[in-house]
């Protein structure tokens, strides 16, 4: 399945009032959720000194940089510079904001103006995100598919593999059927680990 959207994280890995690193293409992302639950994906770089915003902290509806505490609101605009508490930061200080949606427990990000909504993966839920030290091509080869959304079998279970290019490597976001019991989920997690070992062994062979 093809889509303008890139899967960057599983929703349950980014709880309220937290930030996490991610990436789209070659751009590092700060993916964060406000206290009220709003998800956002920004360029992972504070315009002040280039510090990664994913190392920052969330207070209420703002993300702040860990370096100097500059805080940014919903629109990516700088709202407060602690070194100058009385200053209203100029409009021009702004973090690039990416289109970001949540659907079926997945955080999707797009560059530019994406056409349409992210894929509907009804009936599945996020299991785990795994980093694989091999290019996406190696994963596609194993699964025999193409594109970021693959419906594949992992052992006896039909799962969805969301394949995200992560530099030269890959992030695999694994979705399991909602009906799976705990033992099946554990088995899927183990199977994913085994799959990763195989892919990496192939890639370095």
């Amino acid at each position: 399945m093809q889509t303008d959207w890139t899967p960057v994280a599983l929703s349950h890995d980014i709880p309220v009032a937290s930030a996490a690193p991610g990436r789209i293409g070659d751009t590092a992302l700060a993916i964060w959720r406000s206290a009220s639950g709003r998800i956002a994906a920004w360029s992972d770089r504070c315009p002040h000194r280039g510090m990664r915003l994913s190392h920052g902290y969330v207070r209420g509806e703002r993300l702040s940089c860990i370096y100097h505490g500059w805080s940014y609101g919903e629109d990516g605009g700088c709202k407060r510079i602690p070194a100058h508490p009385d200053l209203t930061p100029p409009e021009s200080i702004r973090v690039p904001v990416f289109a970001c949606r949540e659907a079926s427990g997945v955080v999707w990000v797009a560059e530019g103006q994406p056409a349409g909504a992210p894929p509907d993966l009804a009936g599945f839920r996020g299991l785990r995100s795994l980093h694989i030290a091999a290019a996406t091509g190696a994963i596609a080869e194993v699964f025999g598919g193409d594109g970021p959304v693959l419906r594949v079998k992992l052992g006896p279970v039909a799962v969805i593999a969301l394949v995200q290019a992560f530099g030269d490597e890959t992030m695999l976001h694994l979705m399991a059927p909602e009906s799976c019991d705990l033992a099946t989920l554990d088995a899927l997690s183990d199977a994913a680990e085994a799959l990763r070992r195989n892919i990496e062994a192939e890639a370095t062979a």
Partner: peptide
């Protein structure tokens, strides 16, 4: 964890106060 790793001397790259 600063991006870019090199110190930008181009004034447009980072915003001083």
């Amino acid at each position: 964890n600063q991006l870019p790793a090199l110190l930008p001397l181009d004034p447009g790259m980072e915003i001083p106060t």
